[in-house]
Design a protein around this nucleic acid. Structure first.
Lengths: 109, 109
DNA sequence: TGATATACTATGTCTGTCGTAGTAATAATA
DNA sequence: TATTATTACTACGACAGACATAGTATATCA
């Protein structure tokens, strides 16, 4: 399991990635993260939902209600053009970050 | 310049790396980081010194005073065996982290 | 009927980063 | 000789993000 401080700067990016193709909602995103990483990373519920509100405040995502008639009503999120631009920036930043961190990692220990 | 939230989980690792060979002190470590990363990452002074005290509290490093007779007396830090073990762990964790993050990064945008 | 899965919200704590400011000594420069 | 820059820190407080805990509400399944 990965300590979350490491991932901290990428939680928003992870969520945005999962919204690139289709809108989604909390539970589904959370499940997707778990499955995609084979349980190597599990985003805490509170972390996820607080990320949603931050992303929405920044206008990187928009919310709307699902029309499911059964079950509790879901809040769906859709990525905005601004969100896509931000996602792209973070992807570019990632390569720089990786380079920087790897200057301090010994591969041969 | 990299946003520090991204590096957050690796500041301690960066410092430990720079102590692997020889003891060092704040200013020198700070300079080494700047130079090694070609100014791509600059650790803030307060971040650095608070990392020192955290690392010392965890017994990953030990401090001692330099014997320079001129200039302000420096506090040197030496990595401990526990620190080396921790450093190694973080290196191993890094590869997992990288794998995880890259599941959410689009290379072709 | 009770457990489990879904789908959240609210509240408060903690940690690490960082802004700001201050202290103190030496070296360089005008 | 005065002041500015560089070195080498310490103190304090603010803030953001992660997370623990708890609670609400619906549906499904054994």
């Amino acid at each position: 399991m990965i300590s979350s401080d490491v991932i901290r700067g990428y939680n928003d990016t992870i969520i945005l990635f999962l919204l690139l193709k289709d809108p989604s909602y909390g539970y589904e995103i959370s499940k997707n993260i778990r499955e995609l990483t084979k349980e190597q990373y599990i985003m805490k519920e509170t972390t996820l939902y607080s990320a949603f509100s931050r992303l929405e405040k920044n206008q990187y995502i928009e919310s709307f209600y699902g029309d499911e008639t059964n079950g509790k009503r879901r809040t769906y999120y859709r990525i905005t053009p601004l969100g896509r631009a931000y996602y792209q920036e973070k992807c570019e930043e990632w390569f720089v970050t990786k380079e920087v961190v790897e200057k301090f990692i010994e591969t041969s220990l």
